[in-house]
Amino acid sequence: MCTGKCSRCVAVSLYPLALVSIICNIVLFFPGGETKYAQDGHITEEVKYMGGLVGGGLLVLLPALYIHMTGQGGCCANRCGMFLSIAFAAVGVAGALYSFIVAILGLHNGPLCRALVIWSTPFKNRDDSYLNNRNLWSLCTEPPNVVEFNVGLFSTLLVTSGVQLVLCAVQMVNGLFGCLCGSCTNKGPL
């Protein structure tokens, strides 16, 4: 496969992944579909880090746009453009890695919820994981179904950022080949 076509394929794959990351992070601000928890400051700490919005969203979307332009014929489809795509893909790797780490922390620490009478993170610093024991999930009484909500969305962010990480790494290698060997363009007969 030509390095330009590979760049276009990577970029087109990154667009929906960045959109999913952004949507997941925004939805995490509204557990149970309610705005009152965000207004009262009862949001899980890892949601406030905005790993999906900033990391897996903007820091992947901007490189995807440049990588897509690199794959097109014209001024960017040259050795210099492919070299710059390595730097942009590295930014994408950093963003995806940030989103990945925040998602892992969100899954590990669990949600902020009302446990009995106080708002806390009841699953944080436990010896056993709440992910393996659904009976522990009943500790959270408010917002309703917040554990399932957080696990679902942080898991989606984890998978999405993992795929983004792989795609951006592939583009770094592709950009290196394009920089060293040149990008192939369809040249007509002389």
Results as ranks from 00 to 15, higher is better:
31 P>M: 02
31 P>Q: 03
31 P>I: 02
32 G>I: 08
32 G>N: 08
33 G>T: 13
33 G>S: 12
33 G>Q: 13
34 E>W: 12
35 T>R: 11
38 A>F: 15
39 Q>W: 05
42 H>K: 04
42 H>T: 00
44 T>P: 00
46 E>F: 06
46 E>I: 03
46 E>A: 10
46 E>Y: 07
46 E>H: 07
47 V>H: 02
47 V>S: 01
49 Y>S: 14
49 Y>A: 15
50 M>D: 07
50 M>W: 11
50 M>Y: 13
51 G>D: 06
52 G>P: 11
53 L>R: 01
54 V>M: 15
55 G>F: 03
55 G>M: 07
56 G>W: 06
56 G>D: 11
57 G>V: 05
57 G>Q: 12
57 G>S: 13
58 L>Q: 02
58 L>C: 05
58 L>S: 04
59 L>G: 01
60 V>W: 00
61 L>M: 15
62 L>W: 03
63 P>A: 10
63 P>W: 05
64 A>I: 00
65 L>P: 01
65 L>Y: 05
65 L>D: 02
66 Y>R: 04
67 I>S: 03
68 H>V: 00
68 H>G: 08
69 M>R: 14
70 T>W: 02
70 T>V: 14
70 T>S: 09
71 G>I: 07
71 G>E: 04
71 G>W: 05
73 G>D: 14
74 G>S: 09
74 G>C: 11
74 G>T: 06
75 C>Q: 06
76 C>N: 12
76 C>Y: 15
76 C>H: 12
76 C>V: 08
76 C>S: 13
77 A>K: 12
78 N>D: 15
78 N>M: 06
78 N>A: 11
79 R>A: 13
80 C>Q: 12
81 G>L: 04
81 G>T: 05
84 L>M: 12
85 S>A: 10
87 A>C: 07
87 A>Q: 06
88 F>R: 01
89 A>D: 06
89 A>H: 08
90 A>T: 12
90 A>K: 06
91 V>I: 14
92 G>W: 06
93 V>L: 09
95 G>W: 01
95 G>V: 05
97 L>C: 04
97 L>Q: 01
98 Y>R: 01
98 Y>K: 01
99 S>I: 02
99 S>W: 02
99 S>A: 15
99 S>F: 00
100 F>H: 11
100 F>C: 03
102 V>F: 06
102 V>Q: 05
102 V>N: 07
103 A>Q: 10
104 I>T: 04
107 L>P: 01
107 L>T: 03
107 L>G: 03
108 H>S: 15
